[in-house]
Amino acid sequence: MNTSTAHTDHYDPESSKIGMWLFLFTEMFLFGGLFLVYAVFRNKYSADFHHGAHELNAFIGTFNTVVLLISSMTVAMSITAIQKKNRKLAVNMIIITIVLALVFMLNKYFEWSYKFEYKLYPGSPVMMNLPQGEILFYGLYFMMTGLHALHVLIGIVLLVVNIFKIRSGKVHHERFSLLENSGLYWHLVDLIWIFLFPLLYLVT
């Protein structure tokens, strides 16, 4: 680890963090727009939304919620570890987070392929023959969970980058802004799922 040259270049964690939060605000409104559409159509087609939510597997939803919550804790712990100069633990915590993220994605894969088996996907003849409200429900379901899954994948890439940066000594106890901001991104992914889970899987 080379700390002597680390301070010669520009490093401003406060500004980076504010920049990251500003980006997260735009992300919140990206999903917020979809939540808004969900709220209005749920109001209009409550019976169809009720039926659609009933069809989703609440067990997989609950399992994935638990997985994401644990992964949020491990990524937070990795920041504590790096601040306490425990690089090994920090890397291990990130690895656990990535494994949990992959478990989440695997579940999502099974969940989606189960629906594809029944020819239920956006634009399919089976879906188009459903009542109007259910078309909207499944459309929103695929759009929201798909966009969320894309964020999980981006989060995995960010965390992998962090592992390499910690190993090469570019991220350490005095310079962990990258890990901190990646952690914020990961928590946002968790945050969105916390709202998605009851709205799509539970409220029937």
Partner: peptide, 28 residues
């Protein structure tokens, strides 16, 4: 939500979600 409160279950589920989001924001 297993108990089926009807319209109230939406409110309860969302309130619980809000508490969870607050915990994540404040601590994590």
């Amino acid at each position: 939500t297993e108990i089926h409160f009807g319209a109230l279950s939406v409110a309860v589920a969302l309130s619980v979600a809000c508490v969870k989001v607050a915990l994540v924001l404040v601590y994590f």
